[in-house]
């Protein structure tokens, strides 16, 4: 889930010589019965996939929750910013989606995920109804949206919604360094009630570890009742704080995570102001406009 990527090695399009002699598989008649066990009679290696347990669910708001998931065995090594596939069995099969972990790398034995409930989604309603104690599938940590070792530059973290998750992990990681860099964390949400991890981020602010910039785009909604803080979209707050906090493009690295539209706007804004090192992680999901592609289920 990162804007940069490796490129697969180029090689000619061929299968094995033996394979080429066979007719294309899309000649398979639609009515042909599927083999329950493929040739070779080995059992499917994909069965019995649950390997972790939801040990805690904390409701941040009616639509956002923090899930703590403990693997059956020792937690696989991961670095801040990575994601894992989280899945649960629905109608006999594992339905899973990738989520960035908010856990502190190197300590603890569980992952933490911020999950937005999608009412008609294929996965999240089942996570909600299962709750603590439910058995789930947890994939291996993946992704290269990660910190540079010993980077002394100001770290500008810009997130929307549950895109906050990798930055919680990153702050943990940076806090563990001998000399943590300056950290500015912008978190934009629609409603104040969706400000996940607010207490922890305010505590980190009091400790001088983080400059926390929450912003609410729908302050008049009942779910924002009592909000007296910054209002407006994530990108608006970002534009304001670049000047307010005196962020120097030459000594700042920016990490962006959240809705693709926010990420695109923030990238454009930062590049326009001379920020050269901008790294992005986009959260895809239902309703996300992906030209030519089907929306993912959730």
């Amino acid at each position: 889930m990162n804007g940069s990527r490796g490129v697969a090695p180029a090689s000619p399009r061929v299968a094995s010589p033996a394979a080429r002699s066979l007719r294309p598989a899309h000649d398979i008649p639609p009515t042909r019965p599927l083999p329950s066990v493929p040739r070779g009679s080995r059992r499917s290696p994909t069965e019995a996939a649950e390997n972790a347990t939801i040990v805690e669910r904390e409701d941040v708001s009616p639509s956002v929750a923090r899930f703590v998931v403990r693997p059956d065995g020792p937690i696989a090594p991961f670095v801040a910013g990575q994601y894992l596939a989280l899945g649960i069995r629905v109608d006999g099969r594992i339905v899973q989606r990738p989520y960035s972990t908010a856990a502190c790398p190197g300590t603890g034995q569980a992952h933490e995920f911020l999950v937005r409930r999608v009412p008609d989604g294929a996965l999240t309603p089942h996570l909600w109804s299962a709750g603590a104690g439910a058995r789930v599938r947890l994939g291996p940590p993946k992704g290269i949206f990660i910190l540079e070792p010993d980077d002394p530059r100001t770290h500008l973290f810009v997130s929307s919604g549950t895109g906050l998750a990798p930055f919680i992990s990153m702050v943990h990681a940076l806090a563990g360094r001998d000399r943590p860099p300056r950290i500015v964390l912008v978190h934009g949400v629609s409603h104040a009630a969706d400000l996940a991890e607010r207490a922890r981020l305010e505590a980190w602010t009091r400790d001088g570890l983080v400059t926390y910039v929450p912003t609410v785009s729908r302050p008049d909604d009942p779910a924002s009742a009592g909000w007296r803080g910054r209002v407006g979209r994530t990108e608006t707050a970002l534009a304001d704080i670049c000047g307010e906090l005196g962020l120097d493009p030459a000594t700042t690295v920016a990490y962006l995570c959240g809705h693709p539209g926010m990420v695109e706007n923030a990238e454009r804004l930062l590049h326009g102001r001379g920020f050269g090192d901008v790294r992005a992680e986009r959260f895809w999901g239902p309703g996300t406009a992906i030209p030519g592609a089907g929306a993912a289920a959730a």
């Binding site: 090689s11 299968a15 894992l84 596939a85 990738p98 291996p140 993946k142 895809w284 592609a293 993912a296």
Partner: peptide, 19 residues
Amino acid sequence: PAADRKAYIDPEGCIECGA
């Protein structure tokens, strides 16, 4: 290409971007 007749998507790596 030496062994496979199709490509495979890792379901635990796919981020569903649709590219």
